[in-house]
Simulated assay, not measured.
Amino acid sequence: MIAAAVLTLLLVVSQLALSPGTSQAQPEETKKGEKIYVTPDNLGDGAKPPQPVGTSWLVGDLDTGELQVAQNIDKKHAPASTIKLLTALALVDVLDDPKQKVTAEFEDMEIDGTKVGLMQKNDYTVDTLFHAMLMSSANDAANALGRAAGGQEKAVALMNEKAQALGMTNTRAANTSGLDDPNQYTTVADMMKLAWAVTKNPRLMEIIGTQTYKFPGGTNPETKKKFKGYEIQNHTKIVGRVDGGLGLKNGYTTTAKGSFIAVAERDGRTVVSALLGAENNSRQAAVDLLEWDFAQTSPQTVTTVPVGAAAAPTPTETASGSGGDAGGAADADAVSATEAAQGSSTVTAIGILPLALLGGGVLLLVAAIVFWVRLRKRHRALS
């Protein structure tokens, strides 16, 4: 009985240790037998559009909102690090001095996922933190910017206010980094609205268009040893690699899968592609959608997403939709966890099961030990 209990505990602990987290920066290797996205042989005029492997995607004219491809564009899904574009847009006006110093704290260092390497008790400029967040998708930088803007709660409220102002009615932010949260979600239609707003902000576009950046060194507060700075790269790999590429943002978590927003401009036309829940090759699929769209001489509009002034809510809509926290809390309460972020409930269930088994294993082990002790006492009494 004791052996069985110990075996149960070992199995559960092993499962907990080996289960994938929800905040890894890079996707796992493609599983055997999984459908893999491959660039079509023909992306030219009149060819069929690419078919990414994922939940939803679109491609179309960013200025008019006219889409040539639309797949589940209003389906809510976890955004991963693409939400950092909303973080940047919401905080860039609050943190309007690029030279403002922000002291890193331990909470920045211990955050999950991709990090640029902030060192506690070292000072970084707001400009440096924005570069780290948008170029390297650094969660520690996103967390530090949230603190600088008045704390995470205030930063998230500003993000939701900004989303509401842009008409992103199917988006809700829960953190500044994009780490998985059942109350954080967006749609590719809302991502298009976000992309439009970001491209109209010169300061953010200058950062997003930066390919390499010298990240500063500092001093280890414990050892007092100085460390050198290092170069960081732009993870999105659109600027300088795609003809007319303006960039924007990539993202990945185990729950959200791949997410991507890519924008390019050619011959006076700006095209955006956006994907959510991409199983693999999200960047390649986003780029292929752009290339296909630019190649069409007479593209057919399948639907239109209102962007810019057309997407902004009326004063009546703003008043009725403000809720109690300026972030649409009533909306979030009305949406189930499954609708809010596909897969989050699955991750939660996977996380609860081993914990329940662990608790049962502990109880079984305790019961086995008590039984064994009593048996030993009885044996001694009889002898």
Rank of each mutant, 00 (worst) to 15 (best):
M205A: 14
E105R: 05
A88G: 13
D127L: 03
I111L: 01
W372K: 15
L364C: 08
V116I: 14
E222A: 14
P216W: 09
L358M: 11
V272R: 11
P299R: 03
L10G: 04
A264M: 05
T304E: 08
E317S: 04
A47C: 04
I2N: 07
Q164D: 15
V272A: 15
D288Q: 03
W372D: 12
S345G: 04
G258V: 02
M159V: 01
T253K: 14
D140R: 06
A340L: 06
S19W: 13
Q120T: 09
A4F: 14
N280H: 09
G60C: 05
G247E: 00
S23C: 11
V307P: 00
L358G: 07
Y252K: 09
Y252D: 05
F106N: 09
K84C: 00
G268Y: 08
G247P: 00
V242N: 10
G65D: 04
A256M: 02
A189G: 13
V69F: 09
E265A: 05
H235K: 13
K75L: 14
S320Q: 13
D181W: 03
A368C: 01
A90Y: 12
S320Y: 13
V92D: 12
T304Y: 02
T346Y: 00
G65K: 11
P50C: 03
T39I: 08
G60L: 03
S282G: 15
M192R: 03
N170Y: 06
S56W: 01
P52Y: 02
Q15K: 15
D97V: 12
K228A: 12
D63T: 15
I208M: 00
L67K: 02
R269C: 03
T22W: 15
A319D: 12
I207G: 03
A367W: 14
D181F: 07
S259Q: 13
S345C: 09
T176C: 05
T270Y: 04
L375R: 15
G277D: 07
T219M: 09
F260I: 01
I36S: 09
P49F: 02
L289G: 04
A337W: 12
D293S: 15
A197L: 08
L204T: 08
K121L: 11
G65F: 03
G44E: 14
K193D: 08
G44H: 10
S177A: 13
T219R: 14
E231F: 07
A274H: 06
Y37A: 04
L58T: 03
G146N: 12
V53L: 01
T303R: 08
L86H: 04
T128E: 15
A157D: 06
G117F: 12
I73A: 01
L353K: 15
G360F: 12
G21S: 13
